[in-house]
Design a protein around this nucleic acid. Sequence first.
DNA 1: TTGAAAGCGATACCAC
DNA 2: GTGGTATCGCTTTCAA
Lengths: 341, 341
Amino acid sequence: MHKAGIRDVAREAGVSISTVSRAFTKPQLVSQATRDRVMAAANKLDFNISRSAMALKSGQTYRVALLMSEGITSWFNAEVFAGIDDVMHGKGYDISLYQHINDAETRDRFFTVLPVLRNVDAVFVASFAIEPAEIEQLRRTKVPIVGINTPDPLRFDASETIDDEGGMYRAAQHMIKLGHKRIVYTCSAAAETLDASIDLRGHGFIRACERAQNTHDISWKVLTVPRGRDFADNALTAVLSEDRFPDAICCQMDMMAIPLMIKLARHGYRAPRDYSIIGFDDAPYADTVELTTMRQNPYEMGRNAAMKALTLLEGRALEQPHAILEPKLVLRGSDSRYEGE
Amino acid sequence: MHKAGIRDVAREAGVSISTVSRAFTKPQLVSQATRDRVMAAANKLDFNISRSAMALKSGQTYRVALLMSEGITSWFNAEVFAGIDDVMHGKGYDISLYQHINDAETRDRFFTVLPVLRNVDAVFVASFAIEPAEIEQLRRTKVPIVGINTPDPLRFDASETIDDEGGMYRAAQHMIKLGHKRIVYTCSAAAETLDASIDLRGHGFIRACERAQNTHDISWKVLTVPRGRDFADNALTAVLSEDRFPDAICCQMDMMAIPLMIKLARHGYRAPRDYSIIGFDDAPYADTVELTTMRQNPYEMGRNAAMKALTLLEGRALEQPHAILEPKLVLRGSDSRYEGE
DNA sequence: TTGAAAGCGATACCAC
DNA sequence: GTGGTATCGCTTTCAA
């Protein structure tokens, strides 16, 4: 039993294939009666328009690429993916995912296999520290490229970027305003070759501390631990190794802050009783452990990026191609002067 | 500047389009010299084989569908997706994602996407409580259908299924062996129309308790709370409302057990000092909070499902189409007789 | 409102 | 080892 094609339907309905095609793609151009007959036949034969043929004819691929440095199982990436997909799927686009483009080797491989990208209608680059030269290479594909939390966002056709530096600046400032005097910043080391967007957060912390140094008589320190699966334990060790336990911790990300809080509690240090801690992201369980944090919304970023890509795909220009989002301070219980929302 | 096509490359290289095609797909059939010339031309013109055309000609779509009841941002679904993608992406397949086939308009949506499914080479159904009649509908599409944690797995062409019932049976048994006498099972209510795979866990709990009831003099109870974002708080309330605080809690899933542990601690109840608790999944942070749990590996399930689909796609038969996986008891610190691994 | 026919960009069979 | 050509399934003028 061969899979029904458009001509089978045409025969069954007693019309031409042109009419079948129109009945599906431009129903208003077909008379009600004919359309009904076509649809009945199509239904009977389990027929549906071939997307491959549509794609070939239209010149579009109905596929977009999403490049990410880590895996899709991370909170940020899964949210971004969901945001993009929720916009694109309905418009008939699939997402072709390129994960783990982080180490030197995979990067090479990727840009060697780059040809694959010539088979997509748009490219999204998420949290991916890409070199200017590589962006140029991508641009040779002539398809819209939109960046999500990438450095050099202006090199893309559009971008959504979180203000990591400013966000952590405000986070540190919040701790300082609370009156804390011994502040540490815990973070995991940057990837070998790449300088991830997230590292800007460290700059924000330093800027806030340097600025307050004289006026507020604070001491501060950056505690960098190796990246990898044990970064939370390493951060714990680093914090506990300090001569005096800090009265405030700014944490590079919630995924580090949450285990840190939990493990510090086992050592007798409870927030906000013994110290204040602030995270960044508002990742899962931040609410559960009552972590004060700087919220960002990767799902929205994905949605916005996708809508921009769609506009570009339609050949229209973007009124606001580049957006910089400010993370929002979410007060929960982990900072000492918390007084309710 | 028009996008280079195969004929441009042919002209540039001074060969026919047949040769260009072969140079890409069957290099061994083309002489070294010719191939080099073709590749040079292709490179110069930024040319690459059109996947749409390949798809049309070959009759394949190079696209698979993944149906899931929840969103991709959930731990289980993201892991399954990653597993499938890691296998399929390299083989040239993209994943077309159908999320949230679960809410009120379940049926409508389901039958809306059905036609689109005729445009994929295979479909994966993940954690999706599908009716036998619906499976039959799917099978009319004539493509391999593989189930991942679905009821009635034998109705699919292949399946990967976790033994939810047996897993929770063993979890409850573990609590009973530890000597606990007042055991509760906390879970969120099943979805309205659909009876999710996860609900089998409740059956396992009940079976274990009924079996031990006489011999071990235990009392047990199922605490069902409404599904939705507050299920953890609701579970907390339910547990605290018991006349006597239970000495053991079996939790439907880690995502409920983890917040429950954290919140119970705020009420003065600490595991394993005041009670034992066991979860299911080994989800993120289960290790951090030292939750004893039944581990399952959705990433592996995704991989295995994808490899089975690939085999089917190649027209080969499966030696073992249906697999049932046993979750593994992972002892951590949340049960009272923990004595190290 | 409907039909005939020319492609879209590759593949593969058949010659040479 | 290489080239000509029919074909995949649909969309889209152009006529009728």
